[in-house]
Write a protein that binds this DNA or RNA. Structure first.
Lengths: 156, 156
DNA sequence: ATGAGTGCAAATGCTTTGCATCCTG
DNA sequence: CAGGATGCAAAGCATTTGCACTCAT
């Protein structure tokens, strides 16, 4: 992932290396705050600007994408970031907020070649397709009642 | 739509009637600010709280849904609201931000019964499916270069 | 009349920005 | 050693909330 940044002309600072190291192995779709919180111990002077800046650099290099899933209750909806560059869907748990990646063939309705489809009556040229499945994850289903629901990002 | 609100026990105030009247005929997926701006001339004292409150009431009555599509550039991503309660997809133009509804059968990949599918390895029980096609709309494709791109909500 | 709804303003939370300083390439 | 990157704090926005007042039912 670092090579990708370097190839694009981005400088590899210690902060970026740390962010990339953490983010690239993180399948939890962390928010900028999540990453920031985990980096602060090692980089007490780290700022949000740097986290966002690096995430943006990764996006420019095609090494990450962002997800806006909306809030669960009245909380503000933070952008979540995803290092998975393979085509995939997302499943979001309504209760605990966990987000899991789904390979494109794991459901009955694959998104296949819709990318090139030009939607008939509207003249749209489609470039990307994004499918979100909302429901309840296994953990929350087996749990008796709905727990207090902390601030997203479970099983961190 | 008003009946739906009344049936749910919501009071029909002049403000709500105006919001519902405007919103129910609006296929542009307006933001709260869009509606507010169009209502202010007739209701100089209208507040955002009332707009959000009414949109929330409509959502509770199952008469509208919300869309979080993310910002086009660095702007904050406003929630867009949709009075269309039929199952449908959304196509979003990367350039001008326009959002159009797509009937479920207008593309090769229908979302059909995925609602009841339990995604294999993850144990998720899926309740809703949401598909977003991103690309370029007919108008922007025919336009020579990329125009300055004002603050979303084109052809209002 | 009674409590849901309204309006206002302040608060909240995420994200961006300006600018002086730092440090990678 | 030049310009991209960082850190800090303040600014921006969308959205929510508290509270006193109003009005639909």
């Amino acid at each position: 992932m670092c090579e990708g940044l370097r190839a694009r002309g981005f400088r590899l600072t210690p902060q970026r290396l740390a962010i990339v190291h953490l983010f690239s192995r993180d399948g939890s779709h962390p928010t900028a705050h999540d990453l920031f919180a985990r980096l602060r111990p090692a980089f007490p002077t780290m700022s949000f600007a740097t986290v966002y800046n690096t995430l943006d650099a990764l996006a420019q290099a095609g090494l990450s994408s962002s997800l806006r899933l909306g809030a669960l209750s009245g909380l503000a909806a933070a952008t979540r970031f995803d290092p998975n560059t393979e085509p995939h869907h997302h499943a979001v748990c309504d209760r605990c907020g966990v987000v899991v990646d789904l390979p494109v063939d794991s459901l009955a309705a694959p998104q296949v070649d819709a990318r090139k489809v030009r939607t008939q009556s509207q003249g749209f040229r489609v470039r990307t397709v994004e499918t979100i499945y909302r429901g309840t994850c296994a953990g929350c289903r087996s749990r008796p009642s709905l727990p207090p629901l902390p601030n997203v990002t479970p099983e961190a």
